[in-house]
Structure formats: structure tokens, C-alpha cells
């Protein structure tokens, strides 16, 4: 499953299913943030631009924005995070997904990193 994920330099991952893109944060990112205690999610139907803040992950110590890796419309949010924000820590690549964004046409993810490339990138951080 994680073999299908594509990673950004901002430590987000994308899972492409046609024109729907699921977005979450990497294991490295959740470890850096520490215990997540609240996730501020966008609303379904929100239009987002690439690079725009779409969600905020709050740890005890600080808040970190999640930036949209694509432009499109929010078509789903992970409502489980409202009561269980710790899913982002426990299962960042799966149950801790954050939003799904519908893009126009087919998403281009060729310039993003695959798992092996991302792991090498993180080692250099």
C-alpha cells in the first residue's frame, strides 16, 4: 500500500485514485510534531489552491499547517480525527489520512518522490 504513495518535500503523502487525491503526512513528520491533540479540518466543498493551508495539526507544543499539494475541491475529510487525532501519530500513512481532494483531469505526481526516494530525502534533512 505504501508503495503507491508519493511524497512531497513538505513531508506530505498523496495517494492517487483517478482524479481523487488522498493526503496525509509522513511518519517522519508525525514523529517531528509529537503527540497530535487536535486536527483542524477544512469543510467538504472548500476550494483549495496548491500551496494553501488546508488543515492544522496541533500538538501540545505547537501548531503545524498542512499545505495542499494540489488545486481542487475538498471532497472528504477524515472525520475520525475529530475524536481521535492520535491516529495521525499511530497510523500516519493509513488510518491517519487527512483529506481527499478532487482535481480536474488526471493528477500529475511524476515529480514527487516514491517511498525509497523520500526515505533517502529524509536522511538528508
Amino acid at each position: 500500500m505504501s508503495e503507491q504513495l508519493r511524497f512531497t518535500k513538505e513531508h506530505e503523502w498523496l495517494l492517487v485514485k483517478g482524479n481523487i487525491i488522498r493526503v496525509g503526512i509522513s511518519d517522519y513528520a508525525q514523529n517531528e510534531l509529537g503527540d497530535i491533540v487536535f486536527v483542524d479540518l477544512p469543510s467538504v466543498g472548500d476550494q483549495v489552491e496548491e500551496g494553501e493551508g488546508i488543515a492544522a495539526l496541533e500538538s501540545v507544543k505547537a501548531v503545524s499547517d498542512v499545505y495542499s499539494p494540489v488545486s481542487g475541491e475538498i471532497v472528504a475529510v477524515n472525520e475520525a480525527l475529530e475524536d481521535s487525532p492520535e491516529l495521525v501519530n499511530e497510523s500516519p500513512l493509513d488510518a491517519g489520512w487527512i483529506v481527499e481532494i478532487e482535481v480536474e483531469g488526471v493528477a500529475q505526481t511524476g515529480d514527487l518522490m516514491n517511498k525509497q526516494e523520500y526515505e533517502a530525502f529524509v536522511k538528508g534533512v
Binding site: G34, D35, V37, S59, V60, K61
Partner: peptide
């Protein structure tokens, strides 16, 4: 040290 096991657990 900013944290060991995690802020919540330590708290």
C-alpha cells in the same frame, strides 16, 4: 531535552 517518551506521557 524537549521530550523523551512524548509530551503527553511525560505530562
Amino acid at each position: 531535552p524537549v521530550q523523551y517518551a512524548g509530551v503527553l506521557e511525560e505530562h
